[in-house]
Deep mutational scan, measured.
Amino acid sequence: SRSVIRSIIKSSKLNIDHKDYLLDLLNDVKGSKDLKEFHKMLTAILA
């Protein structure tokens, strides 16, 4: 869910600018399909 993804971003080791950017992107995501794609992208970034 959106709140879980937000929590993953906030607890990541990324610097604050990257976190803010990803949180802004997350706010722009519409629909469950796009949310799944965003989660895939985030997982790849944090891997």
Results as ranks from 00 to 15, higher is better:
Asp28Val: 09
Glu37Gln: 12
Ile45Pro: 00
Asp17Pro: 07
His18Asn: 05
Leu26Arg: 01
Asn27Cys: 04
Met41Asp: 02
Leu35Phe: 05
Asp24Arg: 15
Ala47Cys: 08
Asp17Ile: 11
Asp24Ser: 15
Asp34Gln: 15
Gly31Met: 05
Val29Pro: 03
Lys10Arg: 11
Asp24Ala: 15
Asp17Thr: 11
Asp17Phe: 09
Leu35Asp: 01
Leu22Lys: 00
Ile5Gln: 02
Asp20Thr: 15
Lys10Asp: 05
Ser12Arg: 02
Ser1Thr: 12
Ile16Gln: 14
Lys33Pro: 05
Ile16His: 10
Ser7Arg: 12
Ala44Lys: 15
Asn15Pro: 13
Arg2Phe: 15
Arg2Ile: 12
Ala44Thr: 10
Ile5Phe: 05
Ser11Val: 05
Ser32Tyr: 13
Ser12Leu: 06
Gly31Lys: 06
Lys19Gly: 01
Lys36Ile: 12
Ser32Gln: 09
Val4Asp: 07
Glu37Trp: 15
Ser1Met: 14
Leu26Gly: 00
Ala47Pro: 04
Asn27Leu: 07
Ser7Asp: 12
Ser3Met: 15
Gly31Leu: 07
Leu22Ala: 03
Ser3Tyr: 08
Ile45Val: 09
Ile8Cys: 05
Lys33Gly: 07
Leu46Trp: 04
Ala47Asn: 10
Lys30Trp: 07
Ile9Gln: 00
Ser12Gln: 02
His39Arg: 14
Ile16Tyr: 08
Asn27Ser: 10
His39Tyr: 15
Ala47Tyr: 11
Tyr21Met: 08
Lys19Leu: 04
Asp34Arg: 10
Ser3Trp: 10
Ile45Ser: 03
Arg6His: 05
Asn27Pro: 02
Lys36His: 14
Arg6Ile: 07
Lys10Pro: 00
His18Leu: 14
Ala44Ser: 10
Ser12Gly: 03
Leu26Ala: 01
Leu22Met: 04
Leu46Gln: 02
Lys13Glu: 06
Lys36Pro: 03
Lys30Ser: 08
Ser3Arg: 07
Leu46His: 01
Lys13His: 11
Asp24Gly: 14
Lys36Trp: 10
Thr43Asp: 07
Asp17Trp: 13
Gly31Phe: 06
Leu14Asp: 01
Asn15Lys: 10
Ala47Glu: 07
Ser12Trp: 04
Lys40Trp: 07
Leu14Met: 04
Lys30Arg: 11
Ile45Thr: 04
Asn15Ala: 14
Ser32His: 10
Asp24Ile: 13
Ser7Met: 14
Ile9Val: 04
Asp34Lys: 12
Glu37Met: 13
